[in-house]
């Protein structure tokens, strides 16, 4: 008993602590290695990529020159890709969050016919392999002449069943029934209840869903790859993959490697910055989904 007490919370466990820190340290190196390599490589010219050691800087830094070359290539198409990624992700994120909030509210606070069935179907589709739907969706869109338009990427990005599930759970605990009932008795309209009470109280949940949808759209590759062939409509992911293909094919495209790497660095910055600034929301969103 006394021995157990002395080994309490703040206790010693020197061996265990060493092992724990060793595991964390090793994994930290593994996690940061590719990001470190990306940063180092983006400061090198194409020749330096081949002639200097990959995990350390070359004699001179060429990041600015790489960025200039990146945005000049093909009449500045990279800037266009960045703008496209931003447009698709913002539209997808805001759209998904708006639709999911309304649906989550309906499922959380109303008792209606088909409620349980709707909820079950939504949960079921969380498990449907999403990419299996992309090709059929492409064929369907092709019939309506919607491929090679921004809608071919934005519309599918707003369908986010997991977001509905997260919003339902969030509204369950963040919006008290009494508040809604009181507002109704006061004669408030359903629309003003939704925007005045539900949206305001559920804001952290809405931000979470928006972030998740924004990131998944920014990071999406398969959907835009299938849907658009016009380079002026491509997002960063598809454009960079195409340049990489050219670079790897050799024959003159080789000079592209440093541009692909610099482009990758710039393509990663917005999501990483957002992730770091708003991590409280990310982790919150995942947490509430997992624990329930």
């Amino acid at each position: 008993m006394t021995i157990g007490m002395t080994r309490g919370r703040s206790g010693h466990f020197v061996k265990e602590k060493t092992i724990a820190y060793a595991v964390l340290g090793l994994f930290l190196i593994y996690t940061l290695l590719p990001l470190y390599y990306l940063v180092i490589s983006s400061t090198k010219t194409n020749t330096q990529l081949f002639s200097t050691f990959g995990l350390w800087f070359a004699d001179d830094l060429n990041l600015v020159r790489n960025i200039e070359a990146l945005f000049e290539r093909q009449n500045g198409v990279f800037g266009r890709w960045l703008a496209n990624s931003a447009l698709y992700s913002v539209a997808g994120g805001v759209g998904a969050a708006a639709v999911a909030t309304a649906a989550g509210y309906a499922l959380s606070k109303f008792n209606f016919r088909g409620r349980n069935l709707t909820f079950a179907i939504i949960l079921g589709t969380v498990m449907v392999p999403n990419t299996a739907l992309v090709i059929p969706l492409f064929l369907l869109f092709a019939n309506f002449g919607l491929t090679d338009t921004i809608w071919a990427i934005i519309l599918p990005s707003t369908v986010f069943p997991l977001g509905v599930y997260l919003m339902k759970i969030y509204i369950d605990q963040a919006v008290p029934d009494e508040l809604i009932d009181a507002a109704r008795i006061d004669g408030a309209s359903e629309v003003s209840i939704f925007f005045g009470i539900v949206v305001r109280l559920a804001m952290p949940g809405i931000v979470t869903v928006m972030l998740l949808a924004f990131t998944s759209t920014w990071n999406n590759y398969f959907l835009p790859l299938v849907m658009v062939t016009d380079p002026r409509l491509m997002p960063v992911t598809v454009g960079l993959a195409q340049w990489n293909e050219l670079a790897s094919a050799g024959s003159g495209g080789q000079a592209l490697f440093s541009l692909v790497i610099t482009g990758a660095l710039i393509g990663v910055l917005p999501v990483v910055a957002m992730f770091l600034l708003l991590q409280r929301f990310w982790q919150g969103g995942l947490a509430s989904g997992a624990v329930k």
């Binding site: 990529l49 990959g54 590759y221 992911t237 990489n244």
Partner: peptide, 27 residues
Amino acid sequence: AFYLPYAVPTVIAALVWGYLYGPNFGP
């Protein structure tokens, strides 16, 4: 730090690892 890679687009993760693996200038 451990969660950070999840924010990296899989395309970019694959590109960077591909270059790390590469027989030409991979470290």
